[in-house]
Amino acid sequence: MLHIQNLHASIDDKEILKGIDLNVKAGEVHAIMGPNGAGKSTMANIIAGKEEYEITQGNITLEGEDISELAPEERAHKGVFLSFQYPVEIPGVTVTNFIKTAINETRKAKGLEDMPAKDMLKMIREKAALLEMDRKFLSRSLNQGFSGGEKKRNEIFQMAMLEPKLAILDETDSGLDIDALRIVANGVNKLKSKNNAVIVITHYQRLLDYIKPDFVHVLYDGKIVKSGDASLALELEEKGYDWIKKELA
């Protein structure tokens, strides 16, 4: 599904990604781990199309199509979803109105009519129930005054509504208590299928207890320096990142 080949990227002439190779197939869950400043969030933002980064080498393809020149919304229309570490507050626009706009703009881009209001409402109710969100929550202004847990839950709610092919969860576990973590992870697991793929970016093993990865990659200094199965995450949890740094040195 996603092929990243020799990806180099920089911001303000500072190179952050220094040659990333990653292959993600449909039905797989990949975890990206690594110390602070390794380039994990940068990689997520570049896949999603954030404009301030410059790709200096390599390419990103989604289902065989090079997406590295597309605008963020075009990538979203093709099924890329990024759960933000810090979702933006939008006063005056409710959770419901925002997701309606997102869905109908995506449909418009595909040449489809707006989703009938009845179907939309039904879907919103189903997906809100999945994330254990009540109705009052849906009429609040998007992310305004939300707790950390509410913000993340709302991100996964939007993911559930948009049904992406590739979901990238950027530090979705940060700021979550154990109950919220369980709800969020449960939501992600229910959305997983053989047709979509998930990339989980995290510092800690904790989230991976709930969302089981097929592959774990360690990102360090802009490169994937080690890949393995779920046991690699446990090893990192136990030993920290220093042994990898030593191995590299």
Binding site: G49, P72, E73, A76, V80, A102, E105, L162
Partner: peptide, 20 residues
Amino acid sequence: FYMQQRGIPKKEAKALLMYA
């Protein structure tokens, strides 16, 4: 970027931000 990532084109995303 947040709104564009959700599939909302730049013009509409700008409008929503101004509204907010």
